[in-house]
């Protein structure tokens, strides 16, 4: 039976009347056009479907959408529209962090969450920050370097 589910998506109040058992990733992609939320492993392990839920990064896209009722969700579309998000995206482009690109939305979200809490991370802290995101192309080094570049370029914006 359909249910009206209300939540905040990228800063806007939204609602959808649908089967509450549909996966959140399907609702975000199909009903709200958030195609940056990728389906990789379907197990919550690879990080491609990462979103920010109530301020914390999760791979919660595999959960039923009913569990998102009343929550605050930010996807890569929301993150990349911010000054902080743009700083990371540009650093990834300039730093050569992207190969096939499938993992990159999740990586950008991981970098955003990391730098918001830690504006000047060490290499170990960056690697820990992206520990929930798997990339099969790059070997991670250029992603780590690009996050460091974003930290440097962003300067004080990470302290806001």
């Amino acid at each position: 039976m359909d249910m009206k589910i209300c939540f905040k998506l990228n800063g806007k109040d939204v609602s959808v009347t649908t089967d509450p058992l549909r996966r959140l990733i399907d609702v975000l992609r199909e009903d709200f056009g958030c195609k940056g939320v990728k389906e990789g492993c379907s197990e919550g392990e690879c990080g491609a479907c990462s979103i920010i839920l109530n301020g914390k990064m999760v791979t919660r896209c595999i959960i039923p959408v009913g569990a998102a009722d009343g929550q605050e969700i930010m996807t890569i579309e929301g993150v990349s529209a911010t000054e902080k998000g743009q700083t990371i995206v540009q650093a990834f482009a300039d730093g050569g962090a992207v190969q096939c690109g499938f993992c990159i939305p999740g990586m950008v979200i991981a970098a955003y969450c990391l730098l918001n809490g830690n504006p000047d991370p060490t290499e170990d802290e960056i690697r820990l920050g992206i520990s929930g995101n798997i990339c099969r192309c790059t070997g991670y080094d250029l992603i780590v370097e690009s996050i460091r570049l974003a930290a440097k370029r962003g300067g004080d914006i990470w302290k806001k």
Binding site: L21, R23, S42, E43, G44, R60, I63, G66, A67
Partner: peptide, 21 residues
């Protein structure tokens, strides 16, 4: 349905007719 790392994932060990969030 607690954290959601098991239910609904591919290969889940949980099989239930009703999910209680």
């Amino acid at each position: 349905l607690a954290g959601g790392t098991e239910i609904n994932r591919l290969g889940s060990s949980v099989d239930a007719g009703t999910l209680i969030s």
